[in-house]
């Protein structure tokens, strides 16, 4: 009786989960892989071919965009880390404990707001008729308004801004568990600030830094909104190539190949990140 119940319980929980993971995740990705190896021939039939991948390597615009997206994503991840570490350190170790909760709420609040609204905010700040130009003209620092939007640097600014949360939160949670007496001991033994930073703080924070970096890298790589709106026509982000193939050219096979390449890149980087620091995904998400 009890055993039967147990089997039923397992089945009751297992069925919806298996259905979800196979129908919504596994099968669509298999379909993506299959589609990427097929093309439409002159008679309008789908045949097997490697052409989609050959196109990618033969057209410099495609693989250059791909490389550019990857390199900029690494840059964004690094910048986000450099900006986030002092903030996380300040909140966990420096500020008076009574302000800690307040600062933490303040830190999280903007990220509950839609990415679109945040990017839009930057657009009205930075554009030619924007708020920053208005103040610079008023102050006499500029004679002519300048277009600050649609540059690589603003695109990177936007991407760093959008992904900040995913770096700050994991670092805060690891620094929280760092014993203050370690820092005190090092200080008493004569270590300076940089030694403490590189010998104690960063090694201790590595799990948080890795999980933050993985999430930031992945989100930046797959971001469409921010490069598209803040980088404009020159943004050349790989997700835009995918979008163009799917929606504009209606070449789904080519788009699938691009999508699969992006998926492979993001998986490799996640895997490498985990391997290099000897972590596993299960630990990182918790």
């Amino acid at each position: 009786m009890l055993k039967g119940q147990k089997r039923w319980g397992l089945f009751f929980f297992l069925a919806p989960v298996v259905l979800w993971l196979f129908v919504m995740i596994v099968l669509p990705h298999i379909d993506l892989l299959i589609m990427s190896f097929r093309i439409e021939n002159d008679e309008g039939q789908q045949i097997w071919s490697l052409k989609n991948y050959l196109n990618f390597f033969e057209e410099p615009i495609y693989w250059l965009t791909f490389a550019r997206t990857a390199i900029y994503s690494i840059l964004v991840t690094f910048l986000t880390f450099v900006i986030a570490l002092p903030v996380a350190f300040y909140i966990t170790k420096v500020v008076k404990p009574k302000y800690q909760g307040f600062l933490l709420v303040l830190l999280l609040l903007p990220f509950w707001v839609s990415e679109l609204v945040r990017v839009y905010g930057w657009m009205i700040l930075l554009r030619e008729s924007g708020v920053i130009n208005h103040f610079l003209l008023k102050a006499g620092l500029l004679k002519q308004p300048i277009e600050m939007l649609y540059r690589d640097s603003t695109m990177i600014l936007g991407l760093v801004y959008t992904s900040m949360l995913f770096m700050v939160v994991p670092i805060i949670s690891v620094l929280d568990s760092l014993d203050n007496s370690l820092i005190e001991a090092a200080y008493d033994l004569g270590a300076n600030m940089w030694t403490i930073l590189f010998k104690i703080i960063i090694p201790h924070a590595t799990p948080g830094i890795v999980s933050g970096s993985i999430v930031v890298f992945m989100l930046t790589l797959g971001n469409y909104l921010t490069p598209n709106l803040m980088g404009g026509k020159n943004s050349l982000w790989f997700t835009e190539q995918i979008y163009n193939q799917f929606i504009a050219s209606f070449n789904w096979n080519q788009g699938s190949a691009f999508g699969f390449l992006l998926l492979v890149l993001s998986s490799i980087v996640v895997w490498l990140g985990l391997k290099l620091t000897r972590q596993n995904l299960k630990k990182v998400v918790q």
């Binding site: 989960v17 298996v18 993971l21 919504m24 995740i25 596994v26 099968l27 669509p28 990705h29 379909d31 993506l32 589609m35 993985i214 999430v215 992945m218 989100l219 790589l221 797959g222 469409y224 997700t239 995918i242 979008y243 799917f246 789904w252 788009g255 699938s256 999508g259 992006l262 998926l263 993001s266 998986s267 996640v270 995904l281 299960k282 998400v285």
Partner: peptide, 24 residues
Amino acid sequence: GLYFLMLAPLVVPGVILGISILLF
């Protein structure tokens, strides 16, 4: 194995998820 599969959507970019579901 199933647990790792459950975590997979976290490391798949949203755009890819969108196109693969569209295709399927």
